[in-house]
Design a protein around this nucleic acid. Structure first.
Lengths: 203, 203
DNA sequence: GACGCAACTGACCGTCCGGTCGGTTTAACA
DNA sequence: TGTTAAACCGACCGGACGGTCAGTTGCGTC
């Protein structure tokens, strides 16, 4: 067995988990160490026993989030139909967000908003991996002749990733605006996105 | 002439402008009233003479940003070619962001991240206006027979807005990743986006 | 020139912040 | 059982925070 009298996990990981939740919900500045400590059932001093500083704890949280997200990319089935392959990628990409919302909030915020270089290095890595994978997929599709040569793969990759990021961050508010697509399941949403990008909307 | 000895504008608007810049750059929690005061060449106490509280000042800044953004929507030329009309909308939408980056940062952040209801009411309004305008444009296109009936206008509007928001917030970092499209001018970028959405990428 | 009032300030308040420190408990090992 | 080191805590620190207040200045009005 792991611990004897307190909590369910050891203090360090309890601190990390509480910090992840709080940082994801409120952002770095709005979260105090007192809050993290009480939320993790730990004295504030003990946080400094396990982590050098508040920013150190934050970067550790980011590092863990990036690492956890890394195992999610997974290999896509090597089908020959690029419609299916693109759809599968978009679905999986969006699933990674909605299935791990706190982690995703952390990474997306740091990526879009990040002023700290260290945080950007971590999340940039993450976005670059997805981006490159998608671009390569599109280039293969062009080589196979199923996708038009004249379109820039970077641009298409951006479109798909942007659509997913937007869905993840804005869906609650967009629902209130009265945009019923955001009631769709993530899978249905990314399928619709993929279909439009492939076929276009012109008659 | 307006003021006699200090600054160029009256204190209240100097405070508002300094607050807008700082809030846009660092976010609400990371900006202190001391910083705003010194940045506006005003005593901290004077901020409380003009505004009830820090959050009050922040919402005033948001309100101004939303109001300023409202005049930007402008009417689009009523052409019959929906390719051109869509392209014009996308271009104008993205221009509104890049030409007023601090304002746009404030609104986009509050829209995507906003936990405060008051902030959401302000920015939601803004996004809803753009969204509805774009959806109506697409519906007209469908009625005229130039756009496929089977696609959901909400979805297409989302795609365009998401692509623009992503460009605006992520372009610097995406450039570092090595995605050369983000070196394109905003106009060129939104033209490319529009073209893909209209024609699709399939051969 | 006295009045009234908005604009404005420096000094101050209580609170909470990130972080430190001295000391106690726990647990593995000799 | 004594030693050692990590885990942990309560109390504390200087400083910054948002906010208050008593008082001064500038100015239009009668």
């Amino acid at each position: 067995m792991a611990s004897t009298h307190v909590g369910t996990a050891d203090a360090a990981s309890r601190i990390l988990q509480a910090a992840e939740t709080l940082f994801a919900a409120k952002g770095y500045d709005a979260v105090s160490l007192n809050l993290i400590a009480s939320s993790a059932a730990v004295s504030k001093a003990n946080i400094f026993h396990h982590f050098r500083s508040k920013s150190d704890l934050y970067f550790e949280v980011l590092r863990n989030a990036a690492a956890a997200s890394r195992v999610d990319v997974g290999n896509l089935p090597a089908q020959s139909d690029y419609h299916e392959r693109l759809a599968a990628f978009a679905r999986q990409h969006l699933r990674n967000y909605v299935n791990h919302p706190t982690r995703a909030r952390l990474l997306v915020r740091e990526f879009l908003d990040g002023t700290a270089q260290i945080g950007q290095l971590l999340t940039r890595d993450e976005f670059a991996r997805n981006f490159d994978q998608l671009v390569n997929l599109l280039k293969q599709g062009q080589r196979s002749g199923q996708l038009r040569d004249s379109v820039d793969p970077d641009l298409v990759a951006t479109l798909i990733i942007a659509a997913n990021v937007f869905y993840f961050r804005a869906r609650v508010t967009m629902r209130q605006i009265g945009a019923p697509i955001f009631d769709q399941t993530p899978d249905a949403y990314s399928d619709l996105i993929t279909e439009i990008i492939l076929r276009g909307i012109r008659t």
